[in-house]
């Protein structure tokens, strides 16, 4: 690796043209999204309508919010594979609270708290027990999925007595914009602000960029890591509540493989799995690219199976583009 890195650095000074190319490459995810939309607009008359675009945004919200959380984790150089299970867990816990007749607000808070607690567990396993993030969160993914089944006997819990709950996710602002889309953008803005403008955000980049240098600069690396997993759990809990509200139930088997979709969105958005690099804006664009792709292919009558093939190809292509971008530096 080092050798290649050095070889790269020996390339000639960049010219004005190369600078432009750099800008283009930086905007690559956004441009891809626009191109994709243009392509589907031509390919299907139904694609470019307010209704359909709002549907896409709605479909993006849940994955998008989780992807924002896991972006933090990935920038520190970690990974969280437990998102899907944990999301379902938050729905199940909220549902259990509902069955004993707790007020709606309390149910929601319990749901979010349950997921946040899972985040704390992941963080503690990674920092205190020194278990690699991949393993720690893989273990959590399996165990929590099991807990979901244990708590519910494998059956969904419905929020029959809470008619308001469903409107939280199925309602629309001005009858146009679905509420979850608002949540996505509000959370996105906040998360981007934290990442760009606060000490916590700066430390996240520092830890991912060079953990030892960060430690020797006096940064409490373990605490930063613990906090990113906790934050990721918190957002997963919020995503879980949105999904539960949309389904009006806590589904113990909901969200299978959502973690992989979230990670794919993060990666498409230009965040490096090696850590130190990434943005929230990129992640949201990445999440939108995935749902536009699904929606557009659907409208064009492409089968579910081929859609999976296409999504996989897009993930790989996005990282390849990213490599090209780095090489052009």
């Amino acid at each position: 690796m080092n050798m290649f890195a050095q070889a790269e650095k020996q390339q000639p000074e960049k010219t004005g043209l190369a600078m432009n190319r750099e800008v283009v490459m930086k905007l690559a995810p956004l441009l891809s999204l626009v191109l994709l939309c243009m392509f589907f607009s031509v390919g299907s008359p139904y694609f470019f309508s307010v209704d359909n675009l709002m549907t896409i945004a709605l479909q993006t919200a849940v994955i998008g919010i989780m992807a924002i959380g896991v972006t933090y984790v990935i920038i520190t150089g970690g990974i969280d594979l437990s998102l899907g299970s944990v999301m379902a867990f938050s729905g199940v816990c909220a549902g259990l609270a509902a069955t004993v007749g707790m007020p709606l607000v309390v149910c929601i808070m319990i749901g979010i708290a349950a997921a946040t607690a899972c985040g704390v567990v992941s963080g503690a396993l990674v920092t205190k027990a020194n278990i690699p993030p991949f393993i720690a969160t893989l273990g959590l993914m399996m165990s929590v999925r099991g807990l979901n089944m244990v708590f519910t006997d494998g059956r969904a819990i419905y929020f029959l007595d809470y008619p308001v709950f469903s409107t939280l996710a199925n309602g629309k602002l001005f009858g146009i914009i679905p509420f979850p889309v608002l949540y996505l953008f509000a959370i996105g803005l906040l998360a981007a602000f934290i990442l760009r403008r606060t000490i916590f955000g700066r430390y996240i980049y520092a830890v991912g960029s060079n953990e030892e240098a960060a430690r020797l600069s006096g940064i409490n690396v373990q605490q930063v890591k613990l906090m990113v997993y906790t934050f990721c759990g918190l957002l997963t809990g919020i995503a879980g509540m949105i999904l539960a509200a949309r389904l009006n139930s806590g589904q113990p088997s909901a969200g299978v493989s959502y973690e992989l979709e979230a990670i794919a969105a993060v990666v498409i958005g230009g965040t490096s799995l090696a850590g130190g690099v990434g943005t929230i804006g990129g992640t949201i664009i990445g999440a939108f690219i995935m749902s536009v792709l699904k929606n557009g292919l659907n409208l064009m009558g492409v089968s579910q199976f081929w859609q999976m093939v296409a999504t996989g190809a897009v993930v790989v292509a996005a990282v390849y583009l990213d490599n090209l971008r780095k090489r052009s530096k």
Partner: peptide, 13 residues
């Protein structure tokens, strides 16, 4: 490179 600097971050950071 290994311990002193976060090479991927800016001079300012």
């Amino acid at each position: 490179k290994q311990e002193g600097l976060a090479l991927g971050l800016s001079v300012e950071t």
